[in-house]
Nucleic acid binder design. Structure first.
Length: 205
DNA sequence: GGAATCCACGGTGG
DNA sequence: TCCACCGTGGATTC
């Protein structure tokens, strides 16, 4: 792995919401990052671990049916109460800042539980609909163990590795979902559980 | 030696 | 009809 290590130069302190820490990725893609964005992240992590109805999914891949290497729980925030009221508060905070830029509010929360370093998600982009060419925004809150969030341009290029710590916020916007892919790679290093909350506009996973 | 990365594989569904 | 999607495991690279 030659790719390096991003936090490098990214100033993550200070007023994220002035967008002073926006990192432009090129071609209209950008990410915002903020560490320790979640208040009382310890309690939220513990509560979600217990309260969420985590689901294991299986997927046919080639000649086998495999367990998806993470647990998931999806919530449409417009039609059902979230598994924890803190999710509503986080959504409000995000909408206060981003709904204008987005043109519509975040309305859904997808939760993933990465139980250990063997849990992961492969390279993908979150597009709305299959053939859509429109940009969307995804906000990801991380709780629990630190895991690398990797980003790379579609079609190849240097990838970024962004360690996501307990309570961190990462927002991907602009063309990011179309022109970049992201992943949470497996790691052989010892890792405890991590929960991610992905806020999206509309009912997409 | 160990960890990370790359790549091929093909059924599914939009 | 077509093609993007995605998890694994072996090979390769770091």
């Amino acid at each position: 792995m030659c790719d390096i290590l991003v936090p490098v130069s990214v100033p993550v302190q200070g007023a994220l919401f002035e967008h002073s820490e926006r990192r432009e990725l090129g071609a209209g893609a950008w990410i915002d990052m903020r560490s320790a964005w979640v208040d009382d992240a310890d309690a939220l992590f513990d509560a979600l671990l217990d309260d969420v109805a985590w689901r294991a999914e299986r997927r046919q891949m080639y000649d086998r049916v495999l367990d998806v290497p993470r647990l998931v729980s999806f919530h449409d925030l417009l039609t059902e109460p979230p598994p924890n009221p803190a999710i509503t508060r986080l959504r409000r905070r995000l909408n206060d800042v981003y709904a204008g830029e987005l043109g519509e509010p975040f309305t859904s929360a997808g939760l993933c539980l990465y139980r250990d370093g063997a849990d992961s998600v492969a390279w993908h982009g979150d597009t709305i609909g299959r053939s859509s060419t429109e940009d969307t925004m995804v906000a990801i809150v991380s709780l629990g163990a630190t895991r690398v969030f990797a980003l790379r341009p579609r079609g190849g290029g240097q990838s970024l590795r962004l360690p996501q710590h307990h309570g961190d916020l990462l927002v991907m916007g602009g063309s990011c979902q179309r022109t970049w892919e992201h992943a949470v790679p497996k790691t052989a290093l010892p890792r405890g559980p991590r929960i991610s909350i992905q806020f999206r506009p509309r009912d997409v996973r």
